[in-house]
Design a protein around this nucleic acid. Structure first.
Length: 587
RNA sequence: CGGGAUGUGGCGCAGCCUGGUAGCGCACCUGCUUUGGGAGCAGGGGGUCGGGAGUUCGAAUCUCCCCAUCCCGACCA
């Protein structure tokens, strides 16, 4: 039994000034967590109970799926991460340190390498596979900007699983085993999730899905179809590719004088304001234009490369999408000095003639998938004040390839069924993906197959944010008064409040009830503080958010106590002798 | 890394412009009263005012440098 008279807890009346999102604000105010470092939090007793409940549910579901738990150090030597190049690729996000001998160490951001090496050290036969192992571990990432309390910390707890299979079919089974286990886990946590297609990110690999909790404060943007079940992280959206148009009979491209039109809007206005540009299709729109944006890629080895991206003029380049498709390179702005170094590029009037490995600038040129053979564009003519009209792809210009870099807009066609899509925000709660053989190969993991031949197993990697789940649950379970936890993760089942004069019958009745509730298997948080006014007790109970609040108050003279459901606010008077049965009927 | 803001007791804030005994609310301690919606009165404890250098008889306050935190962007599970 938790007695508030000695519980290590102090609730705050004011919101902490640095907390923006509800989960951060309420978890601090209600005394669950407390900031200890930038991006790092101390768990107080109530918070630690909730954390352990969440962790227990995840562990139980992993165990039920037949996965085996192991536990690695968080402090690791750099060599395994050098073997996979992640010592470099992870960049500034990796916490690095040296031991007394000057050897490099890191605080692990994730453990693919170590799991692979562990299996390499113990297993050598196809008969040992498939294998599913996991751990629940503190991870470290030197985030540029930790934020939103537990939602994005620099130290956080993750459950990470790894599968090892002999072939792709077996990996597919492992993948779906994890997928199903995740669905069950999030259902049991009471956390709504949407499964979206994703990019695999810095981990490498192929098939990949994220479990997102659809919450507006989330940092992930995803696209969901209004009619079919298509859902994808915006980075992973593949736009529908239009059919090519026969080149025969298309109007010839012509250079047009378009003075002072360096932006798409000025260009479109100019075309519509001058009669010589009139065309049967009607007014020009931004969608008839193609804009060519130059960015700079910085590769992990430190070299840089310019890249030109052509997108329809009615869309911005989405840097997240672009960035996801150029990994592990990172984007840098293409600045004035870069323009100066590439005289072939005329700012505001860049066109395909200057682009591509065969163009005058030699800059690699990738275009949006909508730019297919036979589509005609208004685009820069590489001369100040001049654009080209009816420049047809496949006839007048080509690119070095295709890239998904244009922004996705609400109402765009679903790649699956063509219905309009909607755009939502979400918190990434889980990520599952097929790693393939990248790690096994670079770390030399192989097993013998039936024929005695060495073969490389294929791997999967599966994560759940454990500490983040606590925040997500707080985020989805609160109201204007405070938190309201789902019962299974709540710090207690019943918050028992004494409301009556000291020396009255309430305290002894409540003491007895507390004992009975506990004997009946209920977890009790008992507000047995003395000299605290009823208002404070009620406010604290609502802030703390235990699912059932029982008030022993003035009704006690008739043998009645009040039972209140925190979430619905419903209250009923129940004879004190029936409280245990009443609660059991609910739980 | 760019833009903006803020650093004053455990929490929320005022004081700074115009230099002169460090203040308010909450929380905490003592006493009395109060007890169904963040009680009242009286008394009390707790702060190198983010750090350093400078200006000055005197700096929370002015100047310079640094650091940290938060927000937006960039980046990222």
């Amino acid at each position: 039994m938790l007695r508030m008279s000695n519980l290590f807890l102090r609730t705050l009346r004011d919101d902490p000034s640095d907390a923006e999102v509800a989960s951060h604000r309420l978890l601090v105010r209600a005394g669950y967590i407390r900031r200890a470092a930038p991006g790092g939090f101390t768990w107080l007793p109530l918070g630690w109970i909730v954390y352990r409940n969440v962790e227990r549910i995840i562990r139980e579901e992993m165990d039920a799926a037949g996965f085996q738990e192991v536990h690695f150090p968080a402090l690791l030597p750099k060599e395994p991460y050098e073997a996979t190049n992640r010592w470099v690729e992870y960049g500034d996000n990796l916490f690095r340190l040296k031991d007394r001998h000057g050897n490099d160490f890191l605080l692990a951001p994730t453990h693919e390498e170590m799991f692979t090496l562990l299996v390499k050290g113990l297993y050598g036969s196809y008969k040992d596979l498939p294998l599913h192992i996991y751990q629940i571990q503190t991870k470290y990432r030197d985030e540029a900007r930790p934020r939103a309390g537990l939602l994005r910390g620099r130290e956080f707890v993750m459950k990470d699983s790894y599968s090892f299979d002999i072939d792709d079919e077996s990996l597919d089974r492992s993948y779906h085993l994890h997928r199903d286990a995740y669905i069950k886990t999030f259902e049991r946590l009471g956390l709504p999730t949407v499964i979206v297609s994703a990019m695999s990110g810095a981990m490498g690999g192929s098939a990949s899905e994220e479990f997102l909790a659809p919450i507006d404060v989330g940092e992930d943007t995803f696209v969901r179809c209004s009619s079919c079940d298509y859902a994808a992280n915006t980075e992973a959206v593949n736009v529908p590719v239009p059919d090519p148009i026969p080149l025969d009979g298309l109007p010839a491209a012509q250079v047009a004088d378009t003075p002072k039109t360096p932006t798409i809007q000025t260009l479109v206005d100019h075309l519509n304001a001058h009669a010589e540009f009139n065309r049967p299709e009607g007014d020009w729109t931004a969608a008839d234009t193609m804009k060519n944006v130059i960015v700079k890629l910085r590769h992990p080895d430190g070299t840089t490369e310019a890249l030109a991206v052509g997108v329809p003029g009615d869309r911005e380049v989405d840097e997240k999408r672009l960035g996801a498709h150029v990994e592990p390179a990172v984007l840098e702005p293409f600045g004035e000095t870069d323009f100066a170094a590439n005289p072939a590029l005329v700012k505001g009037y860049i066109g395909p003639g200057a682009l591509g490995t065969t163009g005058t600038s030699g800059i690699r040129f990738l275009v949006d998938p909508r730019i297919v053979e036979g589509t005609r564009w208004v685009t820069g003519a590489n001369e100040p004040g001049k654009h080209v009209v009816d420049l047809a792809y496949g006839r007048d210009f080509t690119a070095d390839g295709v890239i998904e870099a244009a922004e996705v807009l609400a109402g765009d066609e679903c790649p699956n069924c063509g219905s309009p899509v909607e755009i939502r925000r979400g918190i990434e709660m889980g990520h599952i993906f097929k790693l393939g053989r990248k790690y096994a190969e670079s770390l030399g993991l192989s097993v013998q197959d039936e024929a005695g031949k060495q073969v490389t197993p294929t791997m999967g990697s599966y994560g759940i944010g454990v500490s983040r789940a606590v925040a997500a649950l707080a985020e989805t379970n609160n109201d204007e008064y405070g938190l309201c936890w789902p019962r299974e993760v709540a710090p207690a089942d019943v918050h028992l409040v004494i409301a009556g004069k000291e020396g009255g019958p309430q305290r002894p009745a409540a003491e007895q009830l507390a004992t009975e509730l506990e004997a009946a298997g209920l977890r009790v948080l008992f507000d047995d503080r003395e000299g605290v006014s009823p208002g404070v007790r009620f406010k604290d109970a609502e802030l703390i958010g235990v699912p059932t609040i029982v008030v022993v108050g003035r009704g006690i003279t008739d043998g009645l106590v009040e039972v209140k459901d925190r979430k619905s606010g419903e209250r009923v008077d129940v004879p004190i002798g029936d409280v245990v049965d009443h609660l059991h009927a609910q739980t």
